[in-house]
């Protein structure tokens, strides 16, 4: 291994489990959430990160995920209390100005579309919801998608188009698009190959490839093929077909809970139940239709318990944040030697 991950700082994140972190699009602020029903906003003062704001009383139960809007003015939080809260600081300080209700029970994930006009949520009720930002503190439900037959763990948007992907306890990933003719959203692809729960997923910067991670201890890379593609992949129906072009197996010894694909460097980071953070790099001679990845860094005991989430700094400065069941949030710097 030729590279290293240096710990810059350890932050006491949350009482109980620290579930998730989200970088502000400018990369100078991040938000975290956890079992303690609190959202914390951190920023850097000199060399050190510290808590700037705590958002309390927004949710009745565990907050499972937070997500900054692309404009950086809104923060969405998904909670086991069945609601998704939208926070903004129009009035000077952050407050919850809209609550999205509709899920039957636990909301597990929330994600903003690249334009910031749409919001996706998913949860234990097996459904994926798409909401449209419809004006000041107004959100309307655009679609309720019942494609999965189990708990939906994660939603992620394509980096530039209005294409949504979701990962589920039913071992599959589904891809959704809006049909312009029917003016309704529907599932356009089902990605089947994982042998257990798919915990998370991340698009690369082009949106043509998708990385998924699973309780089957693997990470898979998928590629979208359009009709009449050069390599002769059949597209029997619809606009495209997603094919698994690479499986990273034998690297993780426990569940892989999260995967982050840096849109600047192309590095893939994974968070695992074996308390390790791993960094994968695509090889120089990688075949685009059967890519190869090297494990370039393996950080043992990154946390003392399950690592739940990893996120690359969006500015591409190789900073990585992780958080864990141990309640801690860690900031790392990746470097190649």
């Amino acid at each position: 291994m030729t590279s290293k991950l240096d710990l810059l700082q350890t932050l006491s994140g949350h009482k109980g489990i620290a579930w998730n972190v989200s970088w502000h699009p400018m990369g100078k602020i991040f938000a975290s959430c956890g079992e303690d029903k609190i959202i914390k906003l951190f920023s850097k003062e000199g060399q050190a990160w510290s808590v700037k704001t705590m958002l309390v009383d927004g949710h009745q139960r565990t907050i499972r995920e937070v997500a900054w809007s692309p404009c950086g003015n809104f923060l969405a939080s998904a909670s086991f209390d069945g609601t998704t809260a939208i926070w903004d600081k129009k009035n000077g300080q952050f407050e919850c100005n809209a609550t999205l209700e509709g899920h039957e029970n636990e909301v597990k994930s929330v994600a903003w579309s690249p334009s910031g006009q749409l919001l996706a949520t998913c949860g234990r009720d097996k459904s994926v919801w798409i909401w449209e930002v419809a004006g000041d503190d107004e959100y309307v439900c655009e679609a309720v998608l019942n494609a999965h037959n189990q708990d939906v763990k994660k939603v992620a948007w394509h980096p530039s188009a209005e294409i949504l992907a979701s990962a589920s306890y039913d071992n599959t990933v589904k891809v959704y698009k809006e049909d312009q003719v029917e003016s309704d959203w529907s599932c356009v692809a089902t990605l089947e190959s994982h042998e257990s729960t798919v915990w998370s997923l991340a698009f690369d910067k082009t949106g043509e490839r998708l990385a998924t991670c699973s309780a089957d201890n693997t990470v898979k890379i998928w590629k979208e093929y359009k009709p009449n593609n050069d390599v002769g992949v059949m597209v029997p129906e619809g606009d495209s077909v997603w094919k698994c072009i690479c499986t990273l197996s034998g690297y993780h010894s426990r569940c892989v809970y999260d995967v982050a694909w840096c849109h600047s460097t192309g590095l893939i980071a994974t968070a695992s139940g074996d308390d390790i953070i791993r960094i994968f790099k695509e090889t120089d001679d990688s075949n685009p239709d059967a890519p190869t990845f090297d494990l370039v860094c393996k950080k043992y005991n990154a946390h003392s318990q399950d690592v739940n989430c990893v996120k690359w700094n969006p500015t591409g400065n190789n900073e990585l944040i992780s958080c864990s069941d141990d309640g801690e949030i860690k900031i790392w710097k990746f470097s190649e030697e």
Binding site: Q117, E132, A134, E142, S183
Partner: peptide
């Protein structure tokens, strides 16, 4: 009453 920009027939 329905400020959405999208069609919703």
């Amino acid at each position: 009453y329905y400020p959405a920009s999208r069609r919703n027939p």
